[in-house]
Design a protein around this nucleic acid. Structure first.
Lengths: 213, 213
DNA sequence: TCATTTTTTGACCGCATGGCCAGAATCTAG
DNA sequence: CTAGATTCTGGCCATGCGGTCAAAAAATGA
């Protein structure tokens, strides 16, 4: 047996970290390919080319595996998108950078975003309630709302309900990925450009200066 | 046995229609309460107070049951919302009427909308692919796109990608229901008002007249 | 009333899942 | 080389699913 793998987990052996990474990768690939409901432990193990029991050995259960997948992808997205946002000079450009940055990440890492959506919408606790619920989405809304408020304070954005807008923007992004993965012919970056314009116009301050001429 | 229940089904006996309606109601209630993944035939039958076999007797299978649920709710929404849209005089008000009308329906029939979302996101065919995919969502986008184009032709709306906007509006509506069912304290109609304003501003034509004063 | 049909029941089937574990294989020190 | 710890395998388990079925029950009609 082993005494590790507790939530208070600490140093793992080298080979153990490698195995966990391998399994996580296999999980991402499998979910992206066949969807969460069909991504059984057996199928994930098959993708990884290992026996099913190995997953149970290195992870406390399917839930811990999924937690790791989510954490890994989130971290990666943050590292990819945050710098792009921070180099902008105003709130509207930051919003555009967010939309296009996330879209760019999705293009660079096809499947990652889809896997995230799959896990969020399908993973359930033992009692049947969604495993990633209010608390997790709250973490998504807060940075957006801070961005909105900054724009409101600077006068770039009008007065609007930041929560409604945050929910809407997040939903619009999710829909963008769903739609583009269902219709691969539709150019994702073109979609992202169009969407970022929609979002900025929805909340920008009414133009103070009259139309030209 | 019985020779009915074929897709080319025709007249059903009175009692049969009643039973089917009862089962459909139980299915809606069960899905709304415990979510699609936990709404097994056994649980639906339990809600209806009947034996599981009765469902198999009156429906070809779980799929046909779900089709009926979807059809019923869609029909009801259309009958409730369409008149409200048609009595508007311009495209922007029609868009607002759509958002608020659907929200109003959701308030009048709590659970129906959630059930629809549950079925769409979780129902799968035998091969694991989503049961309600591109074809079904297309039916949602088309009326919206027609509304957008009408507004563009009349000059109310600016030039934008109607497909991106349709996907966004539908996603925003779905998110509104999800969010408000997760946070019952948030007033749905207030949300709908805010959202309709966001959407109109995203696509309205740039104001031709200068700011007052 | 009684024969026939329609409807309901509850047990049962095959299947897939997540998890478990005894034993085999592999690696690591001494 | 050998003993012990680590890792892996493949089969097993209980559970729950959708669906089926023979038999019981209820409704129907002559």
């Amino acid at each position: 047996m082993r005494s590790k793998n507790e939530t208070s987990g600490q140093k793992r052996s080298f080979i153990e970290k490698a195995r966990r990474a391998q399994i996580i990768t296999a999980a991402v690939d499998t979910i992206a390919e066949v969807g969460y409901p069909n991504a059984s432990l057996a199928r994930i193990a098959d993708t990884a080319g290992i026996s099913k029991g190995v997953i149970s050995y290195h992870f406390a259960g399917k839930d811990e595996l999924m937690d790791q997948v989510v954490t890994d992808i989130y971290t990666e997205i943050g590292e990819s998108v945050l710098p792009r946002i921070m180099e902008q000079q105003n709130a509207a450009d930051m919003l555009r950078a967010h939309v296009r940055g996330v879209a760019g990440y999705a293009l660079t890492h096809p499947g990652r975003m889809a896997t995230l959506t799959q896990i969020f919408t399908h993973a359930r606790k033992a009692d049947g309630t969604p495993r990633y619920g209010a608390a997790e989405t709250e973490a998504l809304y807060e940075p957006l709302e801070n961005l909105y408020r900054a724009g409101q304070d600077s006068g770039e954005f009008r007065d609007f309900d930041v929560r409604v807008m945050a929910v809407t923007q997040q939903a619009a992004l999710d829909a963008m990925f769903s739609y583009c993965s269902l219709h691969p012919d539709h150019d994702l970056m073109a979609y992202a450009h169009e969407l970022s314009e929609l979002l900025v116009r929805a909340i920008r301050a009414d133009p103070p200066s009259p139309a030209p001429m």
